[in-house]
């Protein structure tokens, strides 16, 4: 039995989720910032963390964007194989939802359809859509407005298969060292290990959807997360580059099967305003 779903429901849900993601900071992220605030010993950095917590409160209360960079609109869809979509194109339904959220809520339109000509579409579209077909008759939607100051700091390496865990750690720590204070630390790091060049980068992005303080259940990956977090927090960058140990608030590593000849590693850097929201139809 198939379940018929009109794509207008997807438009409405995408609009609702982007409105929420851009104005209400994720509870796990807010909690991580509060913990850093409690622990911070450098006065400048502590007052900056206080501002970030206050900013999240103001944005949620006044329903305005947490950050003016409301990002490029990334959408993850998990569509049940028993769903039959009707009423138009899926891609257009998602884009209409993005346009609605961004115009209704006065979010900044930051997308240019052509990277060379660079004319703004004025609707923050097209969205970046990743679709998986899964079991069932529902649709799970996760939206992620991704700011580009931090996106610019992402890195990928096609490492040798004989590389050791410490080489993976060194590459990831190097990415944060290169990002320095520029991309709004404390950062969250999504790290993909394995796969192919493109799936590794996607795994890194998806890792940012995990609760920021969560730990990978596989002990060898949890060790990587812990070491990367310790080493990046010893770089001395700190909140907004003001020094101290609050450079990275969370590290999430996701692994994928790969080829005997390679070991791709991708780091997707997020600023402290790590935003996403999920819902179902």
């Amino acid at each position: 039995m198939s379940r018929k779903i009109d794509v207008s429901l997807i438009t409405a849900k995408v609009a609702e989720l982007f409105a929420r993601a851009n104005t209400e900071l994720r509870p796990d992220v807010l909690e991580a910032l509060r913990e850093l605030y409690e622990k911070e010993s450098i006065p400048n950095a502590k007052s900056m963390l206080g501002v970030l917590v206050e900013n999240a409160g103001m944005a949620g209360k006044e329903k305005i964007a947490i950050c003016q960079d409301t990002g490029i609109s990334v959408v993850f869809l998990e569509i049940g194989m028993d769903v039959r979509l009707s009423g138009g194109s899926l891609k257009e339904a998602v884009d209409r939802g993005v346009e609605k959220a961004y115009s209704d809520n006065f979010f900044r339109m930051s997308v240019v359809p052509d990277p060379v000509l660079r004319e703004n579409t004025g609707g923050n579209t097209p969205a970046v859509v990743h679709t998986d077909i899964v079991e069932g008759d529902g649709i799970a939607i996760t939206v992620m407005p991704k700011g580009f100051g931090s996106e610019n700091k992402g890195k990928i390496a096609m490492m040798n298969p004989t590389s050791r865990p410490e080489d993976i750690v060194a590459f990831c720590v190097g990415a944060v060292r290169d990002a320095g204070p520029d991309a709004c630390p404390p950062y969250a790091l999504g790290i993909g290990v394995g796969g192919t060049m493109e799936t590794c980068a996607l795994a890194a992005k998806k890792a940012l959807l995990r609760p920021v303080s969560s730990v990978n259940p596989a002990p060898h990956l949890a060790r990587l997360e812990k070491e990367i977090k310790q080493k990046t927090n010893s770089l001395g960058i700190g909140v907004m580059g003001l020094g101290g140990g609050s450079t990275v608030m969370g590290v999430c590593v996701e692994a994928l099967p790969t080829h005997i000849a390679g070991l791709p590693v991708a780091v997707n850097v997020s600023c402290h305003a790590l935003r996403s929201a999920s819902g179902e139809i």
Partner: peptide, 9 residues
């Protein structure tokens, strides 16, 4: 420099 990511504030 000012507070990055604190645009509402």
């Amino acid at each position: 420099v000012t507070a990055g990511g604190a645009g509402a504030y």
